[in-house]
Each structure stands twice: as C-alpha cells, then as structure tokens.
C-alpha cells in the first residue's frame, strides 16, 4: 500500500463524517428485509428500494461523502500541503486517493445492494447491482474528487448534480440522462441481470463509453488541477 493510500485511508476513517456512511446501507437492507419478511410482492417495493433509494440516493451520496472527503477535507484543513511538499508526480497523489474513494464507496454500496438485489429477485440481480454500482462508484468518485479541486464548495455542487441534475432534470428532460452516472449504472445492471424492475434508458455503448469518459476525464482534470494548486497567503 502506498503511503498516500495509507494516509488517505487513515484520514477518512479517522474523521467523524465517516459515520455518515452507515445509516443509508442499514436503511436499505432493513427495508428490503422488512418487505421480504412481510411477504410483500417484490414488484411493489423492489423499484423504490433498489432504484429510488439504492441507486438514486445511497450510491451518489456515499460517493459524494467519500469522494470529497479524500481530498476536499485535506484541502480544507491544510494537511494536503504535507503531501504536496514531496517530490511526487501529482498523478501519484490523485490515483491512490481515487482508489481509496472508489474502494470505500464500492464496498459501502455494493454489499447492501447485493443483499437487496437477492431479496428482490435473484443472486444474479444482486451481483449485477454490485458490479454496476462498483463502476458507478468509480465514475462518481472521479467526478467528486475533481470537484474538490475545482471549487471551494464541492459538497454543495455535488448535491446539485445528484439532486437537481440526476433527481429532477433526468425525469423531465430525457437527453440529460447521457450525463448521468445513475443511468449508466441502471443500464449496466439491466444488461448483466435483466429484470422488469430496472429499465436502462441509455444504450449500453453510451453507458460504457460515458462511464469511461467521466472516470478518465475527471481524473486527468484533477491531476492537471493539482499540478497548479495554489495556496493563498493567510496574512496577505
């Protein structure tokens, strides 16, 4: 494990905002278990729980908390300077941080989505959700990590993307779905494990290519931005 990865992981798990990761997965699994044990038809609760809560809230919100946490928190408290004053190419800082953000997000999201998928439909659907959400975790993390370097309010802008762009505009203007990670995940899941619960609204090539564009594009942007990272004087 690289030193940057180790410090990033220690920093992430050592901050209180890490506790914010727990309620949503517990809620998702709890609702799925409750509905299943009550014998309710999965057709009635499957979509709101898996799509509405799992892919619409749990995945992007977890990625937002973690993705902005791995770099944004260090920028806010100034500890990033300790890493930046080392003779490291900037990609060697961004990539480990992206790996930690993606790994933690994927783990936090894929496990409860797998459990919910199994309870709703089948093991295959659970695996499809887990695999597609891991891809979504990567694309979201690259986006939110880059936001940490592009703006002083990455959480606010991230929420605007998740709530306004994905939550509101996607349901009104269908063309906006081409720029929605959530819809890439839906399409990927639908192709891995087709069910009546999810309906991919973008094509598979678009989902694959755009996931790659999000990931690579925002990662390169973050590396480029970190190369010219400025620290304003506090006494001036």
């Amino acid at each position: 494990m690289s030193t940057v990865t180790w410090i990033t992981a220690r920093g992430l798990f050592g901050r209180r905002r890490f506790l914010l990761l727990f309620p949503l997965p517990v809620l998702l699994v709890g609702l799925a278990v409750l509905a299943r044990s009550a014998g309710v038809d999965p057709g009635q609760w499957g979509q709101p729980v898996v799509y509405g809560l799992g892919l619409g809230v749990l995945l992007p919100v977890t990625a937002l908390i973690v993705g902005t946490g791995v770099l944004g928190s260090e920028i806010d408290d100034g500890t990033l300077l300790h890493i930046l004053t080392k003779p490291l190419p900037r990609w060697q800082i961004v990539l480990p941080k992206l790996a930690v953000a993606t790994g933690v997000t994927a783990l936090t999201v894929a496990v409860p989505l797998y459990v919910a998928g199994v309870l709703v439909d089948s093991v295959r659907f659970g695996l499809g959700l887990a695999a597609a959400s891991a891809v979504g975790a990567l694309a979201y993390s690259a986006f939110f990590l880059a936001l940490s370097l592009l703006t002083r309010r990455p959480v606010l802008l991230g929420l605007v993307y998740v709530l306004i762009w994905e939550g509101l505009l996607n349901s009104i203007v269908s063309g906006t779905r081409v720029l929605s990670v959530q819809h890439y995940v839906v399409t990927l899941t639908d192709r891995i494990a087709p069910t009546a619960l999810l309906d991919g609204s973008v094509s598979l090539p678009v989902a694959i290519v755009m996931s790659a564009v999000f990931t690579v594009g925002f990662t390169l942007l973050a590396i480029r931005r970190l190369r010219t990272f400025s620290v304003a004087g506090e006494t001036s």
């Binding site: 100034g78 500890t79 300077l81 300790h82 930046l84 003779p87 190419p89 010219t228 506090e234």
Partner: peptide, 23 residues
Amino acid sequence: WGNPAVYRRLGLVTERESVYDFL
C-alpha cells in the same frame, strides 16, 4: 512553481497548524 522536484532540496513549515491529528 509547478515543479515538485524542488521538494527534494526544499522543506516548508507553514503558519497554519494543520497536521494529521490521527498519526
């Protein structure tokens, strides 16, 4: 500026007290 290689020969202690509290 924009040259991380200089940090092989340069050390910086900023005014801000930021430090990894958990280490």
